Amino acid sequence: MGEITATMVKALRDKTDAPMMECKKALTEANGEISKAEEILRVKLGSKAGKTSSRITAEGVISISVFQKKASMVEINCETDFVAKNEEFINFSKNISRIVVESESDSIQEINQKEINGTQVETLRKGLIGKIGENISIRRATFVKSEGTFYSYTHGSKIGVLVDLSIENEELGKDIAMHIAAMKPKAIKTSDVDPKLIDIERRVATEKASESGKPPEIMEKMVDGAINKFLKEVSLYGQVFVKSDDNKMTIQNLLEKNNASVNYFAIFVVGEGLEKKNENFADEVAATTAASKAN
């Protein structure tokens, strides 16, 4: 096992909010593997560990384009929130989502080769970088064709959701999209949840059950109960609808009530999984002012 460095400890602490010493112990036990160490902390400290693992840090916007049975969603990143609100940056983002629909391709390499008003996207991107003074990147894109009807929702410009609903019902479609933005499910149904996620939860639940001192048959039920709870929490159909009056109606109940189903959904959150350098407000103002003067 290699040395457990301060950088590794800090990285784990940033993901979990766990105490420094607990992070170091977990890394030692995990032979330096951060993902395994995070799992160990979840067993020891409960749900607190990992609560900031999805903390959103990078800046940018989500842009969505829908044209009949075709739709796209893109994430364009920049360095500061100032640039994320810049009109030229926003227009660039909208143009990229439109190109994805028109070309029916979500390959970043292919997008960069397309043209907007006779100028290649990559050339426009570099020109925008030079003008604004910040790095700008097309991080990801998705293109889909619907079996039913597309509905979308953007929360500000930071969260974007696309939903393919089996029927035409704008109110229902918007409600489902808004729910997904709020609750961020991992899959439509429990059967669609990634087996790797289930395996991780099962290992954590098994470790917790083994520490309870209960008989094996009780521990088995504890593990099964934890997994069932997890599956309901991360599957769209199993989640309680955010606008439910009695806090009991699930998305599945809501869809059945309307004789509808969800064929597909996608959610993008700006900066998901990325890390932003720490700058305070004054620094951002100074940097933006300096960049504008330079131009």
Results as ranks from 00 to 15, higher is better:
80 T>A: 05
155 H>A: 10
102 E>L: 12
76 I>S: 02
77 N>A: 06
87 E>A: 13
82 F>D: 04
83 V>D: 06
146 S>G: 11
74 V>R: 03
130 G>D: 15
121 V>E: 02
72 S>N: 05
106 D>L: 00
115 E>I: 00
101 V>T: 13
105 S>T: 13
123 T>P: 11
85 K>N: 14
71 A>N: 09
142 T>A: 10
100 V>S: 03
122 E>M: 13
104 E>Q: 15
137 S>F: 01
139 R>H: 14
96 I>F: 01
149 T>A: 10
90 I>S: 04
84 A>D: 02
165 L>C: 07
80 T>S: 14
123 T>V: 15
162 L>C: 06
123 T>H: 14
97 S>Y: 06
149 T>K: 15
147 E>P: 06
74 V>L: 00
153 Y>N: 08
129 I>Y: 04
114 K>G: 06
134 E>I: 00
152 S>N: 14
96 I>D: 00
101 V>H: 02
96 I>V: 10
131 K>V: 02
75 E>P: 12
79 E>P: 04
164 D>C: 02
156 G>L: 08
151 Y>M: 01
98 R>C: 07
131 K>E: 12
158 K>G: 10
70 K>T: 06
117 N>R: 08
85 K>Y: 09
72 S>P: 12
81 D>L: 01
99 I>Y: 05
120 Q>K: 15
88 E>S: 13
156 G>S: 11
160 G>H: 03
150 F>C: 03
96 I>S: 01
86 N>M: 04
68 Q>F: 11
90 I>W: 02
103 S>Q: 12
108 I>A: 07
119 T>M: 15
117 N>D: 14
156 G>M: 07
141 A>T: 03
160 G>M: 03
124 L>A: 02
105 S>M: 09
135 N>H: 13
113 Q>I: 10
146 S>Q: 04
74 V>Y: 00
149 T>S: 14
138 I>Q: 09
117 N>F: 06
154 T>I: 13
88 E>M: 09
161 V>H: 02
71 A>P: 13
80 T>K: 08
146 S>W: 01
89 F>L: 05
124 L>E: 01
166 S>N: 03
89 F>E: 11
128 L>K: 08
153 Y>V: 05
113 Q>P: 10
145 K>T: 14
130 G>M: 10
148 G>L: 01
135 N>A: 11
94 K>R: 12
114 K>T: 11
106 D>P: 15
105 S>G: 08
97 S>F: 02
106 D>F: 01
164 D>I: 05
116 I>H: 03
153 Y>S: 09
140 R>S: 13
135 N>R: 13
150 F>L: 04
92 F>W: 00
84 A>Y: 01
153 Y>R: 08
142 T>D: 12
135 N>Y: 09
153 Y>E: 08
74 V>Q: 04
142 T>Y: 14
128 L>F: 01
85 K>F: 04
96 I>L: 01
93 S>N: 05
167 I>A: 04
109 Q>M: 10
81 D>C: 07
163 V>D: 06
155 H>E: 12
106 D>H: 06
126 K>C: 03
148 G>M: 02
98 R>F: 10
